[in-house]
């Protein structure tokens, strides 16, 4: 199972500049990876190319051995006609009932299950949305700022929980937080603007896991590499 993009060229319809020019990268090992870069460099566009939402690009996207590729983003909503608990119950396959309860507990969301989506805070809304994606059958999940508005401690707990629960699954985490991606991600695709070549540079992150400690020096080294690459 691997993900590979070769010579991707992409421009928005009616756009005057290429978003991607000969963009290539490979991800050969499952785990928590990141797309990192300033706003507007094309992280979301690449995500949508990977999952097949955009088709008007040239180049090759290969997702060998991956059938279900999902893209989630932080502005998604659940319908307000019933509680979030009922919604989760409805979209959870019977075999994943235990996993659902585990995720609800690990995301600190047990208290909110009787509430409607509009009654939740922004951070809680993003967590519920992420839970429902994690309860699907997938091989790659792209999380486009899916933990926005969630406090740092809870975010750390959630990311470590996800890594622990899904060790053989691919995650692409889109974030602007350099410390977070350096600490938790295995490979970080650092985006530069389309005039620079290569357009993305892969930096190895610290891939921090539950029960491990992170060396402060190594973390700083990764952060420096990211800043240097961008």
């Amino acid at each position: 199972m691997f993900l590979e993009c070769q010579n991707i060229n992409f421009r928005y319809p009616n756009g005057s500049m290429d978003v991607f020019h000969d963009l290539s990268f490979q991800m050969k090992t499952p785990g928590f990876h990141a797309l990192f870069g300033p706003s507007g460099v094309g992280k979301t566009s690449l995500a949508r190319i990977i999952v097949g939402d955009f088709n008007d690009y040239s180049g090759v996207v290969r997702s060998e051995g991956m059938q279900n590729l999902l893209y989630s983003y932080n502005l998604e909503r659940l319908p307000d006609w019933s509680s979030v608990g009922k919604h989760l119950e409805k979209i959870t396959p019977p075999s994943l009932r235990d996993r659902k309860n585990e995720l609800i507990a690990s995301f600190d969301m047990a208290e909110t299950m009787r509430l409607r989506f509009s009654q939740l805070s922004l951070g809680q809304q993003n967590r519920v949305n992420l839970i429902r994606y994690l309860l699907q059958d997938f091989h790659l999940l792209i999380m486009d700022e899916s933990l926005a508005n969630v406090d740092e401690r809870t975010r750390e707990k959630i990311i470590l929980g996800i890594k622990d629960m899904f060790p053989d699954t691919y995650f692409l985490y889109i974030s602007h937080n350099v410390i977070e991606v350096s600490k938790f991600c295995r490979e970080i695709l650092v985006f530069r603007n389309s005039l620079k070549a290569p357009q993305v540079i892969t930096v190895n992150g610290q891939d921090h896991k539950l029960g491990q400690t992170v060396s402060k020096d190594k973390l700083e080294q990764t952060m420096l590499e990211i800043m240097h690459a961008s």
Partner: peptide, 10 residues
């Protein structure tokens, strides 16, 4: 879109 996306992709 914000609501329908999940149901479509799954």
């Amino acid at each position: 879109h914000d609501i329908e996306h999940f149901y479509r992709v799954t």
